[in-house]
Amino acid sequence: MKFLFVLSTVFLFAGCGLELDSEDSRNRELERDAELRAQYSQVEGTYLGAGSTVIDGETKTFSVELGLKVASSSTGTNSEGRDIPISTLEGQFRRTDVVQFSDFVNFQTTYNEVDGTIRLFLDDSQPGVEVSARIVGGQLVDGRLDLPSGFGGTFTAEKVQSRVMARSANSEIERIRQVYAPIVGIYRGAFSASSASRSDRGFESELRVDLQFISTTDAPQTPDEVGVEFRLLGTWRRLDVDDEQVVGATKQGVVTFDPLSGRVSFSGTPPALSAQNTNDFQISAFGKLVGDQLMFSEVTESQGFRGRVSGSFSGARIPSAL
């Protein structure tokens, strides 16, 4: 009996020790998480500012918005199968003068409390949009933007509130309208062919650019993301003939526009033709928008059996009728 009592006592104290170790481990996990949350909470919020970059030898300025938000995550499970909590920092970044895919996603974010450096990135495995800066007393300094195409500019910003600005489909639609307002409209002018038959050396044409919203949702993946799908639709039309006189006189396709540089491109095919025939009647154009003047320095148009015509187009924006 004495032996059994001693053995039972050993098991009893061993069980208490395991429970205490488990509780201590849990407390340490919670303390580490609380320390991280307190550290990240100091920099959480919305920062607004301005940046600059050089395009074609000319310095261009742009506005930026950066948001930092504390989020809850897990580093795995402990020996008891419970999640090990850890607070993380999520980032959002966008230039407000352009619209990019990264405007609507959360960046992975690292923050060093010692020197105040932050880094926002999408994926370390391949080049993408990356943002870095230092946080000094509520200010973002030494900001740098890197794009898949290379260096995107420098910026500074100031903390304006201690939470991330809420985004909605309606607010994003309004921002997109403002960004693309300079290119939307009808541009009418002359197409000048550099190599063609005499009858095609020049004719009046127009390009109509419309902004179309395809679908919108306030929360496509997470409550912090806003989905707005849109496109710039271009309609190219010869004014001296119609589609009954010349096949492919009207072409439709996608327009791209960079508000900062003014660069514009258009690629289209006749909407009335079957898919297998559109390659014979394609048009592609590259140029620039300067004020209300659209200038395509390179235009290549395939005209079926009549061959390919290359040239340029210069068109003035027609005032919209009120």
Rank of each mutant, 00 (worst) to 15 (best):
T46S: 08
T46N: 00
L48S: 05
S52P: 03
T53M: 13
T53P: 02
V54T: 15
V54H: 09
I55C: 07
I55D: 06
D56G: 11
G57Y: 08
G57A: 13
E58L: 15
T59M: 14
T61Y: 11
F62V: 11
F62L: 10
F62C: 09
S63T: 13
L66C: 08
G67L: 06
L68P: 02
L68R: 03
K69R: 14
K69T: 14
V70T: 15
A71E: 14
S72K: 15
S74M: 11
S74G: 09
T75F: 11
T75E: 14
G76A: 13
G76H: 10
G76P: 09
T77E: 14
T77P: 05
N78V: 12
S79H: 14
G81Q: 12
D83S: 14
D83T: 13
D83V: 13
I84N: 01
P85H: 11
I86S: 09
I86Q: 11
S87N: 09
T88Q: 13
T88R: 12
L89C: 07
L89H: 04
E90M: 13
E90G: 10
G91E: 02
Q92F: 15
Q92I: 09
F93R: 00
F93S: 00
R94D: 02
T96I: 06
T96A: 04
D97K: 04
D97Y: 03
V99C: 05
S102W: 12
S102F: 09
S102M: 05
D103W: 02
D103Q: 03
F104A: 08
F104Q: 05
N106H: 05
N106A: 13
Q108W: 07
T109F: 02
T110Q: 04
T110Y: 02
T110F: 02
Y111C: 00
E113K: 12
E113H: 08
D115V: 03
D115A: 05
G116A: 04
G116I: 02
T117W: 03
I118D: 00
R119H: 07
F121C: 03
D123S: 06
D124R: 07
